[in-house]
Protein backbone atom coordinates (compact mmCIF):
# COMPACT_ATOMS: atom_id res chain seq x y z
CA UNK A 1 0.00 0.00 0.00
CA UNK A 2 1.33 3.43 -0.94
CA UNK A 3 1.70 6.07 1.68
CA UNK A 4 -0.61 9.01 0.95
CA UNK A 5 1.66 11.38 2.85
CA UNK A 6 5.14 10.77 4.08
CA UNK A 7 7.32 13.03 6.26
CA UNK A 8 11.04 12.32 6.51
CA UNK A 9 12.76 14.23 9.29
CA UNK A 10 10.70 17.31 8.46
CA UNK A 11 11.33 20.55 10.31
CA UNK A 12 9.77 23.97 10.12
CA UNK A 13 11.60 26.64 12.06
CA UNK A 14 10.58 30.27 12.34
CA UNK A 15 12.60 33.29 13.30
CA UNK A 16 16.36 33.80 13.37
CA UNK A 17 18.66 30.85 12.63
CA UNK A 18 20.56 31.18 15.91
CA UNK A 19 17.43 31.07 18.07
CA UNK A 20 14.71 29.48 15.99
CA UNK A 21 11.20 28.72 17.10
CA UNK A 22 10.89 25.05 16.22
CA UNK A 23 7.25 24.72 15.22
CA UNK A 24 7.94 21.33 13.69
CA UNK A 25 11.11 19.58 14.71
CA UNK A 26 12.31 16.43 12.93
CA UNK A 27 8.97 14.75 12.32
CA UNK A 28 8.78 11.35 10.66
CA UNK A 29 5.31 10.32 9.66
CA UNK A 30 3.53 8.02 7.28
CA UNK A 31 -0.15 8.34 6.53
CA UNK A 32 -1.61 5.33 4.79
CA UNK A 33 -3.78 5.81 1.73
CA UNK A 34 -7.47 5.74 2.51
CA UNK A 35 -7.02 6.19 6.21
CA UNK A 36 -8.65 8.67 8.53
CA UNK A 37 -5.65 10.16 10.23
CA UNK A 38 -5.82 12.56 13.17
CA UNK A 39 -3.16 14.94 14.39
CA UNK A 40 -3.80 15.59 18.04
CA UNK A 41 -2.08 18.00 20.35
CA UNK A 42 -2.43 21.17 22.36
CA UNK A 43 -2.20 24.52 20.60
CA UNK A 44 1.35 25.31 19.53
CA UNK A 45 2.33 21.66 19.35
CA UNK A 46 3.00 21.78 15.58
CA UNK A 47 0.01 19.84 14.31
CA UNK A 48 -1.45 22.69 12.26
CA UNK A 49 1.96 23.54 10.84
CA UNK A 50 2.26 19.94 9.71
CA UNK A 51 -1.08 20.24 7.94
CA UNK A 52 0.08 23.46 6.26
CA UNK A 53 3.27 21.71 5.19
CA UNK A 54 1.15 19.13 3.39
CA UNK A 55 -1.02 21.75 1.68
CA UNK A 56 2.05 23.81 0.80
CA UNK A 57 1.24 27.00 2.72
CA UNK A 58 4.43 26.41 4.67
CA UNK A 59 7.74 25.27 3.26
CA UNK A 60 9.85 22.89 5.34
CA UNK A 61 13.17 24.21 6.58
CA UNK A 62 14.48 20.67 6.57
CA UNK A 63 13.50 17.17 5.50
CA UNK A 64 11.39 15.80 2.69
CA UNK A 65 7.61 15.60 2.24
CA UNK A 66 6.16 13.17 -0.26
CA UNK A 67 2.59 12.99 -1.41
CA UNK A 68 1.84 9.66 -3.04
CA UNK A 69 5.54 9.08 -3.38
CA UNK A 70 6.32 12.40 -5.07
CA UNK A 71 8.61 14.93 -3.46
CA UNK A 72 6.57 18.16 -3.24
CA UNK A 73 9.38 20.51 -2.20
CA UNK A 74 9.00 22.58 -5.37
CA UNK A 75 5.26 22.18 -5.91
CA UNK A 76 3.16 25.24 -5.03
CA UNK A 77 -0.20 24.73 -3.26
CA UNK A 78 -2.32 25.22 -6.36
CA UNK A 79 -0.68 22.25 -8.06
CA UNK A 80 -1.03 19.83 -5.14
CA UNK A 81 -4.11 17.72 -5.49
CA UNK A 82 -4.78 18.19 -1.84
CA UNK A 83 -7.62 20.26 -0.47
CA UNK A 84 -8.22 21.90 2.84
CA UNK A 85 -11.27 22.58 4.97
CA UNK A 86 -10.16 25.66 6.89
CA UNK A 87 -10.82 26.28 10.52
CA UNK A 88 -12.73 29.47 9.69
CA UNK A 89 -14.04 27.76 6.53
CA UNK A 90 -12.62 30.65 4.41
CA UNK A 91 -15.69 30.79 2.22
CA UNK A 92 -15.58 33.65 -0.28
CA UNK A 93 -18.13 36.14 1.04
CA UNK A 94 -18.72 37.81 -2.33
CA UNK A 95 -19.77 34.59 -4.08
CA UNK A 96 -22.88 32.54 -3.52
CA UNK A 97 -22.67 29.00 -2.25
CA UNK A 98 -22.74 27.46 -5.72
CA UNK A 99 -19.92 29.65 -6.98
CA UNK A 100 -17.93 28.90 -3.86
CA UNK A 101 -18.23 25.18 -4.45
CA UNK A 102 -17.59 25.56 -8.18
CA UNK A 103 -14.50 27.68 -7.54
CA UNK A 104 -12.00 24.84 -7.90
CA UNK A 105 -13.37 23.63 -11.23
CA UNK A 106 -13.72 27.26 -12.35
CA UNK A 107 -10.05 28.08 -11.91
CA UNK A 108 -9.17 24.84 -13.63
CA UNK A 109 -11.13 25.96 -16.68
CA UNK A 110 -14.18 23.72 -16.43
CA UNK A 111 -17.09 25.26 -18.31
CA UNK A 112 -19.90 26.86 -16.38
CA UNK A 113 -22.55 24.26 -17.06
CA UNK A 114 -20.36 21.34 -16.01
CA UNK A 115 -18.96 22.96 -12.92
CA UNK A 116 -22.35 24.12 -11.69
CA UNK A 117 -23.64 20.58 -12.09
CA UNK A 118 -20.66 19.33 -10.11
CA UNK A 119 -21.34 21.90 -7.44
CA UNK A 120 -24.98 20.88 -7.12
CA UNK A 121 -23.91 17.27 -6.85
CA UNK A 122 -21.53 18.10 -4.03
CA UNK A 123 -24.12 20.21 -2.25
CA UNK A 124 -26.42 17.21 -2.40
CA UNK A 125 -23.65 15.07 -0.93
CA UNK A 126 -23.40 17.38 2.09
CA UNK A 127 -27.18 17.70 2.27
CA UNK A 128 -27.40 21.30 1.15
CA UNK A 129 -29.60 20.99 -1.91
CA UNK A 130 -31.26 24.26 -2.78
CA UNK A 131 -28.77 26.44 -0.94
CA UNK A 132 -26.77 27.32 -4.05
CA UNK A 133 -28.03 30.86 -4.40
CA UNK A 134 -27.39 31.91 -0.83
CA UNK A 135 -24.43 33.93 0.30
CA UNK A 136 -22.17 32.40 2.98
CA UNK A 137 -23.25 35.15 5.36
CA UNK A 138 -26.79 33.80 5.29
CA UNK A 139 -25.80 30.33 6.50
CA UNK A 140 -25.41 28.86 9.96
CA UNK A 141 -22.06 27.61 11.21
CA UNK A 142 -22.87 23.99 10.45
CA UNK A 143 -24.07 24.83 6.96
CA UNK A 144 -20.94 26.82 6.25
CA UNK A 145 -18.91 23.86 7.39
CA UNK A 146 -20.68 21.67 4.87
CA UNK A 147 -20.13 24.18 2.10
CA UNK A 148 -16.42 24.23 2.93
CA UNK A 149 -16.42 20.46 2.77
CA UNK A 150 -18.25 20.41 -0.56
CA UNK A 151 -15.91 23.04 -1.96
CA UNK A 152 -12.92 20.90 -1.10
CA UNK A 153 -14.40 17.56 -2.19
CA UNK A 154 -15.57 18.80 -5.59
CA UNK A 155 -11.94 18.73 -6.67
CA UNK A 156 -11.69 15.01 -5.95
CA UNK A 157 -8.54 15.52 -3.90
CA UNK A 158 -6.12 12.68 -3.15
CA UNK A 159 -5.90 13.91 0.42
CA UNK A 160 -8.42 16.03 2.30
CA UNK A 161 -6.99 18.17 5.06
CA UNK A 162 -9.29 19.32 7.84
CA UNK A 163 -8.04 22.01 10.21
CA UNK A 164 -10.11 21.82 13.40
CA UNK A 165 -13.23 21.79 11.25
CA UNK A 166 -15.64 21.16 14.09
CA UNK A 167 -14.13 23.58 16.59
CA UNK A 168 -16.69 26.32 16.03
CA UNK A 169 -19.75 24.08 16.29
CA UNK A 170 -21.81 23.41 19.36
CA UNK A 171 -21.63 20.01 21.02
CA UNK A 172 -24.70 18.43 19.45
CA UNK A 173 -23.84 19.53 15.93
CA UNK A 174 -20.24 18.50 16.45
CA UNK A 175 -21.21 14.96 17.29
CA UNK A 176 -23.52 14.73 14.29
CA UNK A 177 -20.80 16.06 12.01
CA UNK A 178 -18.29 13.60 13.43
CA UNK A 179 -20.50 10.74 12.34
CA UNK A 180 -21.12 12.30 8.97
CA UNK A 181 -17.46 12.94 8.29
CA UNK A 182 -16.61 9.41 9.22
CA UNK A 183 -19.33 8.05 6.94
CA UNK A 184 -18.28 10.33 4.13
CA UNK A 185 -14.69 9.23 4.40
CA UNK A 186 -15.67 5.60 4.36
CA UNK A 187 -17.80 6.16 1.31
CA UNK A 188 -15.35 8.22 -0.72
CA UNK A 189 -12.23 6.33 0.30
CA UNK A 190 -10.20 9.57 0.28
CA UNK A 191 -7.39 9.97 2.79
CA UNK A 192 -8.53 12.39 5.50
CA UNK A 193 -6.00 14.21 7.64
CA UNK A 194 -7.68 15.80 10.56
CA UNK A 195 -6.20 18.30 13.00
CA UNK A 196 -7.79 18.61 16.43
CA UNK A 197 -6.99 19.43 20.00
CA UNK A 198 -10.00 17.42 21.20
CA UNK A 199 -8.75 13.99 22.21
CA UNK A 200 -12.30 12.55 22.31
CA UNK A 201 -12.84 13.61 18.72
CA UNK A 202 -9.52 12.15 17.63
CA UNK A 203 -10.08 8.86 19.40
CA UNK A 204 -13.59 8.40 18.10
CA UNK A 205 -12.96 9.29 14.47
CA UNK A 206 -9.44 8.37 13.48
CA UNK A 207 -8.08 5.07 12.20
CA UNK A 208 -4.75 6.16 13.48
CA UNK A 209 -3.44 9.25 15.12
CA UNK A 210 -0.30 11.14 15.98
CA UNK A 211 -0.01 12.98 19.28
CA UNK A 212 2.06 16.15 18.93
CA UNK A 213 4.00 17.88 21.64
CA UNK A 214 6.41 20.77 21.22
CA UNK A 215 6.96 20.21 17.53
CA UNK A 216 7.60 16.50 17.82
CA UNK A 217 5.42 13.43 17.59
CA UNK A 218 5.04 12.03 21.08
CA UNK A 219 3.29 8.87 19.94
CA UNK A 220 1.73 7.47 16.83
CA UNK A 221 -0.68 4.56 16.66
CA UNK A 222 -4.29 3.45 16.68
CA UNK A 223 -6.64 5.14 19.15
CA UNK A 224 -6.73 2.03 21.27
CA UNK A 225 -2.96 1.75 21.46
CA UNK A 226 -2.60 5.34 22.40
CA UNK A 227 -5.34 5.31 24.95
CA UNK A 228 -4.38 2.18 26.73
CA UNK A 229 -0.62 2.26 26.21
CA UNK A 230 0.51 5.85 26.35
CA UNK A 231 4.22 5.93 25.76
CA UNK A 232 4.92 9.08 27.71
CA UNK A 233 3.54 11.05 30.61
CA UNK A 234 2.46 13.74 28.16
CA UNK A 235 0.39 11.34 26.10
CA UNK A 236 -1.08 9.73 29.17
CA UNK A 237 -2.05 13.08 30.57
CA UNK A 238 -3.28 14.67 27.33
CA UNK A 239 -5.24 11.68 26.04
CA UNK A 240 -7.98 10.87 28.50
CA UNK A 241 -6.33 12.68 31.45
CA UNK A 242 -4.82 9.66 33.10
CA UNK A 243 -3.37 9.54 36.59
CA UNK A 244 0.36 9.81 36.01
CA UNK A 245 2.31 8.15 38.77
CA UNK A 246 5.88 8.98 39.67
CA UNK A 247 8.23 5.96 40.12
CA UNK A 248 7.97 5.85 43.92
CA UNK A 249 4.19 6.14 43.75
CA UNK A 250 4.06 3.37 41.18
CA UNK A 251 5.92 1.17 43.62
CA UNK A 252 3.44 2.03 46.34
CA UNK A 253 0.72 1.02 43.90
CA UNK A 254 2.38 -2.35 43.46
CA UNK A 255 4.36 -1.75 40.27
CA UNK A 256 8.03 -1.29 39.37
CA UNK A 257 9.84 1.93 40.26
CA UNK A 258 8.98 3.57 36.94
CA UNK A 259 6.60 6.20 35.63
CA UNK A 260 3.20 4.68 35.03
CA UNK A 261 -0.34 5.70 34.10
CA UNK A 262 -3.59 4.56 35.57
CA UNK A 263 -6.93 5.47 33.97
CA UNK A 264 -9.44 6.95 36.45
CA UNK A 265 -12.21 4.64 35.25
CA UNK A 266 -10.04 1.65 36.19
CA UNK A 267 -10.00 2.67 39.84
CA UNK A 268 -12.68 1.53 42.25
CA UNK A 269 -13.48 3.32 45.50
CA UNK A 270 -13.97 0.90 48.37
CA UNK A 271 -14.20 0.95 52.12
CA UNK A 272 -10.94 1.89 53.79
CA UNK A 273 -10.62 -1.31 55.79
CA UNK A 274 -8.36 -4.10 54.63
CA UNK A 275 -7.08 -2.59 51.42
CA UNK A 276 -3.51 -1.84 50.43
CA UNK A 277 -4.26 1.68 49.27
CA UNK A 278 -6.27 4.25 51.12
CA UNK A 279 -6.57 8.00 51.28
CA UNK A 280 -8.70 11.01 52.07
CA UNK A 281 -11.31 12.34 49.63
CA UNK A 282 -10.21 15.88 48.71
CA UNK A 283 -12.52 16.68 45.85
CA UNK A 284 -15.73 15.69 44.17
CA UNK A 285 -16.93 16.54 40.71
CA UNK A 286 -20.31 15.63 39.35
CA UNK A 287 -20.08 14.74 35.65
CA UNK A 288 -23.64 13.76 34.84
CA UNK A 289 -22.79 10.26 33.61
CA UNK A 290 -20.95 9.50 36.84
CA UNK A 291 -18.70 11.34 39.28
CA UNK A 292 -15.01 11.96 39.66
CA UNK A 293 -13.47 11.62 43.08
CA UNK A 294 -10.03 12.92 43.98
CA UNK A 295 -8.28 10.95 46.67
CA UNK A 296 -5.02 11.95 48.33
CA UNK A 297 -2.86 8.85 48.77
CA UNK A 298 0.31 9.61 50.70
CA UNK A 299 0.28 13.14 49.36
CA UNK A 300 -0.37 12.15 45.74
CA UNK A 301 -3.73 13.08 44.35
CA UNK A 302 -5.34 10.31 42.31
CA UNK A 303 -8.58 10.64 40.35
CA UNK A 304 -11.10 7.83 40.24
CA UNK A 305 -14.18 7.80 38.05
CA UNK A 306 -17.34 6.36 39.59
CA UNK A 307 -20.15 5.14 37.33
CA UNK A 308 -23.58 6.68 37.84
CA UNK A 309 -25.62 5.08 40.57
CA UNK A 310 -22.72 4.23 42.81
CA UNK A 311 -22.69 5.87 46.22
CA UNK A 312 -20.37 8.88 46.31
CA UNK A 313 -18.21 9.31 49.43
CA UNK A 314 -18.22 12.62 51.25
CA UNK A 315 -15.34 15.02 51.18
CA UNK A 316 -12.90 14.29 54.00
CA UNK A 317 -13.92 10.65 54.22
CA UNK A 318 -11.20 8.01 54.26
CA UNK A 319 -11.66 5.55 51.42
CA UNK A 320 -9.82 2.64 49.92
CA UNK A 321 -8.76 2.29 46.27
CA UNK A 322 -8.61 -0.94 44.26
CA UNK A 323 -7.72 -1.75 40.64
CA UNK A 324 -6.87 -4.62 38.37
CA UNK A 325 -3.02 -4.78 38.29
CA UNK A 326 -3.09 -5.08 34.48
CA UNK A 327 -4.59 -1.57 34.31
CA UNK A 328 -1.37 -0.10 35.65
CA UNK A 329 0.51 0.86 32.48
CA UNK A 330 4.24 1.30 32.95
CA UNK A 331 5.67 3.81 30.47
CA UNK A 332 8.95 3.57 28.57
CA UNK A 333 9.76 7.23 28.45
CA UNK A 334 9.63 9.77 31.14
CA UNK A 335 8.19 12.76 29.33
Amino acid sequence: MTAAVEFQNVSRHFGPANAPVKAVDGVDLTIAEGSFFAMLGPSGSGKTTCLRLISGFEKPTGGVIRIFGQDVSDIPPNRRNVNTVFQDYALFPHMNVRDNVAYGPMVKGVDRRTREAQAEEMLALVKLEGYGDRKPGQLSGGQRQRVALARALVNEPKVLLLDEPLGALDLKLREAMQDELKALQARLGITFVFVTHDQGEALSMADSLAVFNEGKIAQIGTPKEIYSHPRTRFVADFVGSSNVLAPEVTRAFGGPAKWASLRPEMLRVTAADGVALSGVVTGLRYLGAGSRVTVAVNGTEVAAQLPAGQAVPEAGAVVGLAFDPSALHVMEGER
Binding site: T84, A90, L91, F92, Y103, G104, V107, R151, N155
Partner: peptide
Protein backbone atom coordinates in the same frame (compact mmCIF):
# COMPACT_ATOMS: atom_id res chain seq x y z
CA UNK B 1 -8.38 37.07 5.81
CA UNK B 2 -5.18 35.32 4.79
CA UNK B 3 -7.13 32.06 4.72
CA UNK B 4 -9.16 33.40 1.75
CA UNK B 5 -6.00 33.59 -0.32
CA UNK B 6 -4.83 30.22 0.90
CA UNK B 7 -8.22 28.72 0.13
CA UNK B 8 -8.00 30.08 -3.38
CA UNK B 9 -4.53 28.64 -3.93
CA UNK B 10 -5.63 25.43 -2.25
CA UNK B 11 -8.45 25.09 -4.75
CA UNK B 12 -6.01 25.35 -7.62
CA UNK B 13 -6.01 29.04 -8.50
CA UNK B 14 -2.87 30.71 -9.81
CA UNK B 15 -1.77 33.99 -8.25
CA UNK B 16 -3.37 35.91 -11.11
CA UNK B 17 -6.64 34.03 -10.72
CA UNK B 18 -6.61 34.65 -6.99
CA UNK B 19 -6.02 38.34 -7.58
CA UNK B 20 -8.84 38.60 -10.10
CA UNK B 21 -11.45 36.46 -8.42
CA UNK B 22 -10.77 36.93 -4.71
CA UNK B 23 -8.48 39.83 -3.79
CA UNK B 24 -9.84 42.40 -6.21
CA UNK B 25 -13.53 41.79 -5.47
CA UNK B 26 -12.88 41.81 -1.74
Amino acid sequence: PASMLEASADLGASRAQTFRTVILPL
